[in-house]
């Protein structure tokens, strides 16, 4: 299998992209689709900056061959807001000061989404466990956990 025209479903939109087997999902998202929200940092599966949800599961887009993500449901940070209205998780991150330099934020928000989709009433420990694969070099963890708790509350109330 060499060069091919592949179909991807990202944030509910269909994309048709020419890919080769050695292309990584993060590069297809950023360079081929122009979705720059997904961040590249360590490239080794340590930091979680490149996290996207593939069929709902938090995954490292920097260690995923794009060819294996064809046809799957991919969610990136660009798919969180509804038009100009922020998703409750994003809103809570803004309100609670959980964004400092912002580089880890897309990954943090998506790992949070995966958590809250499964567990609408997480404890602080649940939140820490769910975000253990996402590093914040600004060390703003306390406010990030605060934000997730606020987001969980808003979402339980149907916000």
């Amino acid at each position: 299998m060499g060069k091919e025209i592949a179909n991807f479903i990202v944030n509910g939109n269909e994309y048709e992209v020419i890919i080769e087997p050695h292309m990584l999902l993060i590069d297809v998202l950023r360079d081929e689709m122009g979705l720059m929200g997904t961040k590249y940092a360590c490239g080794a599966g340590d930091c979680g900056s490149c996290t996207v949800l593939i069929d709902g599961k938090p995954s490292f887009s920097c260690l995923t061959l794009a060819v294996t993500a064809k046809g799957k449901n991919i969610l990136t940070i660009e798919g969180m807001a509804d038009g100009t209205a922020l998703h409750p998780i994003q809103q809570a991150f803004v309100e609670k000061g959980a964004v400092q330099c912002g580089f880890c934020t897309p990954g943090m928000v998506l790992s949070t989404k995966a958590l809250l989709d499964e567990n609408s009433e997480p404890t602080r420990d649940d939140v820490k466990t769910a975000l253990a694969g996402n590093l914040c070099r600004c060390t703003g963890y306390v406010k990030i956990v605060d934000a997730v708790e606020v987001a969980a509350g808003t979402m339980r109330e149907g916000g």
Binding site: G45, D46, G48, T51, K57, P58, S59, F60, L63, T64, S111, A114, T129, A130, L131, A132, G133
Partner: peptide, 9 residues
């Protein structure tokens, strides 16, 4: 093994 992404993939 604490990284959720490592364990999901």
């Amino acid at each position: 093994i604490v990284s959720v992404q490592t364990k999901t993939m």
